[in-house]
């Protein structure tokens, strides 16, 4: 085993354990903390996959922003200090169906990729490959985002989506107009 594989196994194990804590812990705040740890583990996996930009993006968005939002949402709606919440609510059947479907999808992709194409799908299992010009991969990403032959349309759609999210949030959260 190379050092990289050992690191991969440790990080994945930490990620999975914290993900398990998220669903089993009765204390919502601790569950949110475990969720952050799990996000951090995913960021570590990105680093191992040589995708430093995505690791930083994961940190910035999921730990720096989404987690805050999650904790705010918890504090907005629940009495936290009583600390123990039931693990199930009325939607557990739907949740089960959704997670089984997602798991099946992942399993399908993994099995597809297993035969022959392991190297492309799991660089971690291979000896470290020399990527051509790291600094340029980010430039390539940036240029492709606004390239008419690249992803300019999804890019602008993403902008509209963000605008929609902001407006939606404003409409939902708007305090009663006093006039």
């Amino acid at each position: 085993m190379t050092a990289q594989q050992i690191i991969f196994i440790v990080i994945s194990a930490a990620t999975i354990v914290s993900a398990l804590i998220v669903v089993t812990n009765r204390n919502l705040f601790h569950a949110a903390l475990a969720l952050m740890a799990s996000f951090l583990g995913v960021a570590g996996l990105y680093v191992l996959l040589d995708a430093g930009f995505f690791a930083a993006a994961q940190l910035l968005i999921y730990i720096g922003a989404i987690s805050i939002l999650v904790i705010f949402a918890i504090m907005l709606t629940r009495r936290l200090m009583s600390a123990s919440e039931p693990s199930f609510n009325s939607q557990w059947v739907m949740g089960l169906v959704a997670s089984v479907l997602v798991f099946g999808l992942f399993l399908y992709v993994i099995i597809q990729a297993w035969g022959g194409a392991v190297a492309q799908t799991f660089p971690v299992l291979q000896a470290p490959m020399e990527a051509p010009g790291i600094a340029d991969s980010i430039r390539a990403l940036g240029a492709a985002l606004v390239d008419p032959n690249g992803y300019v349309l999804p890019f602008e759609v993403a902008s509209v989506l963000l605008l929609g999210a902001l407006i939606g949030a404003i409409v939902v959260a708007q305090p009663e107009k006093k006039s």
Partner: peptide
């Protein structure tokens, strides 16, 4: 808890995601 805080956090998320798109573009300027 004031709802106000939540709105600021939400606006922040939106602008943060925007920054993620803009940073590689700026590097590829």
């Amino acid at each position: 808890f004031k709802v106000q805080y939540y709105i600021y956090a939400l606006a922040f998320v939106v602008f943060d995601v925007e920054a993620i798109f803009l940073f590689p573009i700026a590097a590829a300027y």
